[in-house]
């Protein structure tokens, strides 16, 4: 059955008969575009905030125009100095960090970093941080003057600052308050980045949705720590730190799966994604897009490889990315043993 590449995603997803796994790929060209809160991304792969600087740092290593989007390092209304060293430590299949949101501040971001990002085909998502609701609003108001930002990602989940950040992300009432205020201020779609350091992430997800969030990014890092037993001192000056990397992937994936069933707004999944298969898992679990984080540090071409990997997979499966999203098939207990592998 013919499918048209530029067909609206919704229409395509209503035609499951168009895809037959047993057919050779032939000339089927999948659409890997996705739409999040009215913004189209050329593919569902973004780089995660805090792992990709302001994009330009990678310009000579990879073709940034092949990315779906770039989430820039968390920006606050005023510059922040960050935490004392040591700030990072590698653990088994992961890394701890407590950077403390060191950043140049919203004004300098607009002047020095945004002009470059504006030239790219990749979308620019600006991660916004504050200590108080007023800080978040003030930061957004400054950023509203910028030309070339496609969405905001509200960081209510940073585990490494004394107030703000995760304090908001752990409390549904505070989440609603800061999301509602930010939504009122924002002239662009508002994503809310959730913390996994909660008992039930769907409670916070619904709180953000109810307060007007246009999309949810999950998850930020898990609070962890490491100790040098020789000196009996913490490995990181902040004592506790955020754990990222492949170690957290299964937990992040579970949270995306749960949240996708609890809210209607799109989800951007992240947490330890380092391969095409990781990214596909998140999409199948219900994420509309994914972010690659820690892998950027050791393999800057990871995101580009994942874009191509998703395209190849979709071609082979004769699926558009939109059909993949949330397509997890869970056998029900009363059905006999599955016959297809």
């Amino acid at each position: 059955m013919p499918t048209v590449r530029d067909q609206k995603a919704k229409v395509v997803s209503d035609e499951p008969a168009a895809r037959d796994n047993s057919q050779p790929a032939g000339d089927f060209e999948p659409s890997i575009e996705v739409e999040i809160a009215g913004v189209r991304f050329q593919n569902p792969v973004l780089t995660a905030s805090g792992t990709f600087g302001y994009g330009q740092e990678f310009a000579h290593l990879i073709d940034l125009n092949r990315l779906g989007g770039i989430c820039v390092k968390g920006i606050s209304a005023a510059p922040m100095p960050g935490n004392p060293p040591p700030r990072i430590y590698e653990t088994d299949s992961g890394m701890l960090n407590a950077i403390g949101l060191q950043n140049v501040g919203a004004k300098r971001f607009l002047e020095e970093k945004l002009p470059f990002l504006r030239t790219l085909r990749a979308r620019t998502v600006v991660n916004v941080f504050g200590y108080t609701t007023e800080d978040y609003v003030r930061c957004i108001e400054i950023l509203n003057d910028g030309d070339g930002i496609d969405a905001y990602e509200l960081n209510i989940s940073c585990p490494n600052t004394r107030c703000g950040g995760m304090v908001y992300g752990n409390d549904p009432k505070l989440t609603e308050e800061v999301v509602a205020a930010s939504k009122r201020a924002a002239r662009l779609p508002l994503w809310v980045k959730l913390s996994p350091n909660v008992t039930d992430i769907t409670v916070l997800a619904r709180a953000a949705e109810n307060a007007g969030a246009d999309a949810l990014s999950l998850v930020n890092t898990f609070v962890g720590m490491a100790i040098d037993v020789e000196t009996r001192t913490p490995r990181i000056s902040n004592v506790t730190a955020g754990l990222s990397g492949p170690a957290i992937k299964p937990i992040a994936l579970r949270m995306v799966y749960q949240t996708a069933r609890a809210v209607r707004i799109p989800i951007i999944g992240l947490g330890g994604i380092a391969t095409t298969e990781d990214a596909l898992e998140f999409l199948i679990a219900g994420a509309r897009a994914v972010q690659v984080g820690t892998a950027n540090f050791y393999a800057p071409d990871t995101s580009i490889k994942i874009v191509e990997g998703i395209r190849t997979y979709c071609r082979r499966k004769r699926l558009h990315v939109d059909d993949l999203v949330g397509s997890l098939q869970v056998p029900t207990p009363n059905v006999e043993k599955a016959t297809e592998y």
């Binding site: 600087g53 740092e57 990678f58 960050g82 060293p85 700030r87 990072i88 060191q102 800057p300």
Partner: peptide, 8 residues
Amino acid sequence: LGVCLGCC
């Protein structure tokens, strides 16, 4: 590469 800010 200057992006993680871990070595400051």
